[in-house]
Write a protein that binds this DNA or RNA. Structure first.
Ligand code: FES
Ligand code: FES
Lengths: 145, 145
DNA sequence: TAATTAAAAGATATTTTTGTCTTTTATTGT
DNA sequence: ACAATAAAAGACAAAAATATCTTTTAATTA
């Protein structure tokens, strides 16, 4: 198992790809997205469909249709994607599985784990969906393989 | 979904409980362990069985039998448990699911993610299985609920 | 040796995740 | 209106994670 679920990995890669392609209002088809991020086509379809319902990405049907992200969406944090898919427990929960993470009734890892989890949250909240557009277009960063 | 899998959460809690009880060579039955860490009995059985095969914990059958951890085992890092259960990918892999995490062909999150992953590794490697025994016995730390 | 105990091992079941395929709906262009 | 396009939605399937129950094996005690 990876750090995030497959669903979340595909979502992060797909959203960043769509973001990098939709700066000028362009739309990308799901086939292209699946191809560029190396993910199963129809499975990705379901994922993007859900993100679309959440308003994290936009889509239109028909010719010239496809997925895109509006300017406001490009400014949203990656945390929104992770929370939409993994749920809040992933970013707030106890590392050892206690039903509540608390300073008052801590698990053995609480202090150390909380610090790491806080850093993860910080990263996911400070990083925006559109932040890597330039480097993705330049090809300095990769989303497949 | 939590940060670690259920299997890993149960394993961490169970191993720490066994550790805290086996400082003086005492053994604990699976029923007691499952009860004290609030986990499904037979599922935990399978998990401990695997950890036993890996040599991370010890067990004996029959009356007065049960699970325990030898002095050397108490000094092993938590990383051994996590790796035994989640696999190496969890602690080494790319956060966005690329098949290799590398500086040369990085995903957008590489720099930030690597730092967090490094900290997680540091914690799991520096923390030993027996490290919390005293506080667990004192009841300052919890392993259930 | 026989009975008892407790983990190991095996079989089976349920749920969730991951993946594929088909049909429907909405949009566009002719 | 009609045909073409592309996402939405639904049905289905495979694999993995999670969970339960039963049988077997090994150790202890009487
Ligand atoms: S109680 Fe476990 S991480 Fe806070
Ligand atoms: S390449 Fe993605 S974390 Fe290193």
């Amino acid at each position: 198992m990876g750090f995030f679920s497959k669903t979340c990995e595909y979502a992060l890669r797909a959203v960043m790809y769509i973001a990098s392609q939709s700066s000028d209002g362009k739309k990308v088809g799901i086939k292209e997205v699946a191809d560029k991020i190396n993910s199963p086509l129809h499975f990705l379809g379901k994922i993007l469909q859900n993100l679309s319902k959440e308003g994290l990405i936009q889509s239109t049907k028909g010719p010239q249709g496809g997925f895109y992200i509006n300017p406001d969406g490009l400014k949203r944090p990656l945390a929104d994607i992770v929370i939409a898919i993994e749920g809040t427990q992933f970013l707030n929960g106890c590392g050892m599985g206690l039903s509540y993470c608390s300073q008052e009734n801590p698990c053995p890892l609480h202090d150390d784990f909380k610090e790491i989890r806080d850093r993860l949250n910080l990263m996911l909240h400070k990083t925006t969906i559109g932040q890597f557009n330039d480097k993705l277009i330049q090809g300095v960063l990769t989303l497949n393989k």
